[in-house]
Design a protein around this nucleic acid. Structure first.
Lengths: 232, 232
DNA sequence: TTCCACTGTTAAAAAAGGTTAAGCAATTTC
DNA sequence: GAAATTGCTTAACCTTTTTTAACAGTGGAA
């Protein structure tokens, strides 16, 4: 059985929101609808659901679509984002693409067109699966994020919640800089000084755990963040 | 024979409440009427009835409809919720609140319209998710929530009320985080320290019961809650 | 070079959770 | 109606996880 794809839909207009929700659901997606940008951000970061696709209205109360996309893109450059915009202004579109948008649509649009774009984008982007059985390799070390286990030489090591969350982000941003502040907001909820120190402690823990594979390095980018480097 | 659908109706106005109650019952629904938000919450969490649909008046004493909906949604993302709201209520009040994918109706409305909405929403809700409560498998272990029985290797084990409520929530949120506080409020009525410890005791009980299937794991997410994981 | 914010690391303190068993009230059984 | 049983809570004790502290080392701007 094929697993349903999760879509996060942020749309403040109730009529359009309901319409899209119902339509996408009827097409076999599991849709989560948020009425504000802030609510959408919380749902995205709430680790209850993993989303495979994100649809953002540009104009929303509390947090607009662009700001939200920027926040998401700090840590997640993968998940496709599609903007819905009322304006046909060129600037808007460009702004959207600057932020790593995969596509945009100008209202009004047809449901069929939306579906076509979603499937087109999904086809060219490998959907990162979230199976509990999913496993990957960090260098030579087997890592199962959903079970939060590392398969080390001397047996299976169960990661703590924080170790696992942090390692997931590092891996997702492998060979790229993982922004310090954004990571703190996502994992610790707040980027204050003490949480920062806590994060440094966890970086040290992870370094120790991953030490058995010398091709792995967690590098510090002074004042910016960390970078997980896996040499070929 | 088709099973009657259970509707939870929370309405503090006695006239409207009775009217809706009688009408919906005449249309073949099994209706449970609550006069306050708190009463509705208790009926929802009471182990007596599983509800397929929820209708909430927004303005109610003790606990308003929005707060109630939010509380319900913490643990149950499935059951459709329809709000009844007085015309006087400002549009932005609705907007400020994140309703998720739910519907709302502005008073006064016709009975027929209400019925139409209910049937429309029920039609699009996945039918499998409707009979969550019959009998199911947790890994290899047969579980009948209605009878509160687990079919283990050495016979049928009858679960206690608390064991059953907790397991039901874990199963309903399988592979997702079951929020600690929300679970405590739902099952124990209050999320104080001692109830928390009580819950930990019950988690230990359930772990022991489910131990015979090694593919089942109740994982702790530090400071957040628990997650029932069933490996393939 | 010098200074100071930033990071690395280890250890101690605090908070949260795992588990077993004792306590207690309600109910059932004899 | 006393005794046993049941279901849940509270206590106790221990382990794990996370945070905070302390101190030492680093890096980049002035």
């Amino acid at each position: 059985m094929e697993k349903k794809l999760n879509i996060l839909l942020a749309e403040d207009d109730d009529n359009l929101g309901q319409l899209l929700y119902t339509y996408l659901q009827s097409k076999g997606f599991a849709v989560t609808l948020a009425r504000t940008g802030k609510a959408a951000y919380e749902k995205y970061n709430g680790n209850k659901t993993h989303f495979d696709f994100i649809i953002l209205d540009v104009m929303m109360p509390e947090m607009d679509g662009f700001t939200l996309a920027k926040e998401i893109r700090e840590l997640d450059k993968q998940t496709p984002i599609l903007f819905l915009t009322a304006k046909a202004l060129k600037e808007d579109k460009l702004h959207g693409f600057d932020l790593g948008a995969d596509d945009y649509m100008t209202k009004p649009f047809s449901m069929e067109e939306l579906l076509a774009r979603i499937t087109a984008i999904m086809k060219r982007v490998a959907p990162e699966s979230r199976d509990v059985n999913e496993s990957m390799f960090v260098g030579k070390i087997k890592y199962e994020p959903e079970l939060s286990t590392l398969h080390l030489e001397d047996g299976v090591k169960k990661l703590t919640t924080k170790e696992n969350q942090l390692l997931q982000l590092l891996v997702k941003n492998k060979n790229e800089i993982l922004d310090r502040q954004a990571t703190l907001r996502a994992v610790w909820g707040d980027d204050n000084y003490f949480n920062g120190r806590s994060m440094d402690v966890y970086i040290a823990k992870l370094r120790k755990l991953l030490k058995e594979d010398p091709s792995i390095e967690i590098m510090n980018i002074h004042g910016v963040g960390f970078k997980l480097i896996v040499k070929a």
